[in-house]
């Protein structure tokens, strides 16, 4: 019964209006909205909800996740860019924050100028997986096979600007070959066709692939993180097999530009608490990822990652000639 009451209270709290302006020193005095620019239930949303839950406890105010999907994450990000910079509207975005300025030639906001970075959260590694009866068995064989068969291989990705598309670009870049890329609407349908053997190969986040790899539904070749993963100890890293392909889907927390420094500091502290939380660490581990270190959960680290990643992806995307508008 107690749970029922808290449930009702939760529903009520999420909707209650709060008036009046807040001063930075007693921030926060009302619920904070974290905009996730993707649909609920996806990997980024999951990361956001895990972190938001613990941040709520630390800040003493509800941190509400709001999903504003559409246009490859640029709608939600654009909304936060123009939101009031009072610290009550934040953005949790992934690697797409750094690819959007190149992918979208008419982006209505500037990822560096329109946001105050708060901190990095995590970098989800990716895995190279293929349908069960795909010929190559190891990464070396895969590389040779892809080089030999090129466009006869079908590569699935989860849509324009998705992590799997980016990883595919890097992979083809590293091998200097082209495969036939087949876009899907999200990771779910793409994985369905990999498991069903309708399509050959994908590089996707561990969030989506780990359970399928463990169950033997797909053939896994390598993980793109520098170290092997705890829950897939037999899976080699790309570096071990001599492939230069390192990519992680990094997530960051942002506030609109001009947010009071004291508020950013408070948020940074809450973020650090959340990333040190046991539940968050263990749930992240099940997703095949770890929270970033304390030094990285800072505005400086996020700002640096963002600007270096923007540069990196500008090169890769322009070379591939892939644009989203």
């Amino acid at each position: 019964m107690k749970k029922l009451v808290s449930l009702a209270a939760g529903v009520l709290l999420a909707g209650l209006p709060f008036a009046g302006s807040a001063f930075a020193q007693d921030y926060p005095t009302k619920p904070i909205t974290v905009v996730v620019p993707f649909a609920a239930g996806g990997p980024t949303d999951t990361v956001a909800r895990l972190v938001a839950e613990v941040m709520s406890q630390d800040l003493g105010q509800q941190v509400v996740v709001q999903n504003v999907g559409g246009a490859g994450g640029t709608l939600g990000a654009g909304q936060v860019a123009t939101a009031s910079n009072d610290g009550y509207t934040l953005l949790l975005h992934h690697i797409g924050m750094s690819t959007a300025p190149t992918l979208y030639r008419s982006l209505p906001y500037d990822p560096t100028a329109d946001f105050e970075p708060v901190g990095l959260i995590t970098a989800v590694p990716m895995t190279l997986v293929a349908k069960k009866d795909f010929e190559p068995n190891t990464l070396e064989e895969l590389v040779a096979y892809v080089k030999a068969n090129g466009e006869n291989i079908t590569y699935a990705h989860a849509g324009i600007g998705s992590a799997s598309q980016l990883c595919g670009m890097l992979f083809m870049d590293a091998l200097d070959t082209q495969m036939t890329t087949v876009p899907y609407q999200g990771s779910g349908p793409a994985m369905t066709d990999i498991i069903g053997g309708q399509i050959d190969f994908i590089c996707d986040q561990t969030t989506n692939t780990t359970s399928q790899i463990q169950a033997g539904e797909v053939k896994a070749y390598a993980v793109t993180s520098p170290e092997r993963l705890g829950n897939l100890p037999d899976l080699p890293t790309t570096a071990e097999s001599g492939l230069e392909l390192e990519i992680g889907v990094w997530h960051g927390l942002y506030a609109p530009a001009g947010t009071d420094a004291a508020i950013v500091e408070r948020l940074e502290a809450a973020l650090k608490t959340a990333l040190a939380n046991e539940t968050v660490v263990s749930r992240f581990a099940e997703l095949g990822t770890v929270p970033v270190s304390e030094e990285e959960a800072t505005p400086e680290a996020l700002a640096e990652t963002l600007s270096s990643q923007i540069e990196l992806w500008r090169g890769v995307i322009e070379e591939a000639g892939v644009y989203a508008d």
Partner: peptide, 18 residues
Amino acid sequence: FVVGLGMSVPWFGPWLPL
């Protein structure tokens, strides 16, 4: 909608001097 289902809109918006 607002109380029961927790829809996230303000009762009175920023245009009103309240």
